[in-house]
Amino acid sequence: MNDVYSLKILEALQEDSRMTVQQISERVGLSTTPCWKRIKEMEVKGVITGYTVQVDRKKVGLNLMVMAEINLAQHTDKTVAEFEAAVQATPHIVRCYSTTGQSDYVLMIMATDIEQYEQFLMRTLFKLPAVAHVRSSIVLREVKQGTGLPL
């Protein structure tokens, strides 16, 4: 994506994905038809993977954010696939990263409070396939929360 107009369109959509094609075209200096075509092309090519809304987690009762580092007991194709499928199916796990370093995975987990997280640990996280070790870090404060990519 080296095209200047496409990058400007992406920047505009990252800022506000509810903008109309007319608003985007005015912002980037391109007429509406080519602007719409570029957006559709980026959707087809998978550059734009979806549109979403940002929710204030605390206003919906998710007052606790935890970063959990996970180590697996074994790393066979089967256990990795089972672990990742279980993570995908667990709503309280909102992000999962396969990592290098001391942990195999880093999870971002949302809960209402520490008691709910403790129950989540016992009933869910410790029971995920091949989990050998969990290190939890409670997020005290979110310093930066961005969703846009630096284009």
Rank of each mutant, 00 (worst) to 15 (best):
I39L: 12
V94I: 09
Y51G: 03
P91W: 13
C35E: 06
P91T: 14
G101W: 11
K127C: 02
R38Y: 14
M1Y: 07
E43I: 07
I109N: 01
L64P: 02
K8Y: 10
F83N: 01
H92T: 15
S31L: 14
F120T: 06
V44W: 15
E82Y: 02
K45Q: 04
T147L: 13
V28R: 07
S136E: 00
P34W: 10
D113S: 15
V53E: 12
N71M: 04
T112W: 14
L125P: 00
Y105E: 03
L107N: 01
D3S: 06
T124E: 05
M42Q: 06
Q88A: 04
V4F: 12
Q14M: 01
D104S: 04
V28W: 12
S103F: 08
F126Y: 09
G50M: 15
K37S: 15
E26K: 08
T124W: 13
K127V: 01
R27T: 07
D104V: 03
D113P: 09
H92V: 12
E69R: 06
M1W: 14
F83W: 01
K59M: 04
Q119A: 14
L128Q: 11
F126L: 03
N71A: 06
V21M: 10
V139W: 00
I9R: 09
E43D: 09
D104Y: 04
V134L: 05
C96L: 05
M65Q: 05
L140I: 00
V4Y: 12
K37H: 06
Q22K: 08
S17Q: 09
E43C: 14
W36Y: 11
P150I: 08
L151D: 03
E43Q: 14
M122N: 10
H133G: 08
N71K: 11
I138R: 07
V66P: 04
R95I: 13
Q145C: 09
V131S: 01
Q119H: 06
T76H: 07
V134P: 02
Q119M: 14
R135T: 05
D3R: 08
E118A: 07
E11G: 03
L10F: 10
K45V: 03
E142C: 08
M65D: 03
K45H: 02
Y97N: 10
A81L: 13
T100K: 06
A89Y: 11
H75I: 04
E115W: 08
A132G: 05
T79C: 02
V44C: 10
Q102F: 11
T112G: 12
I138V: 15
E84P: 05
E26L: 09
S103R: 14
S6G: 12
Q14Y: 00
K78C: 01
R141T: 06
I9Q: 08
K127S: 01
V47S: 03
G101T: 14
Q74V: 07
L10S: 11
W36C: 14
A73W: 15
Q74I: 06
K58N: 07
L10C: 09
D77H: 12
E15D: 04
H133T: 13
I114N: 02
L62E: 00
L107H: 01
R57V: 02
V44I: 10
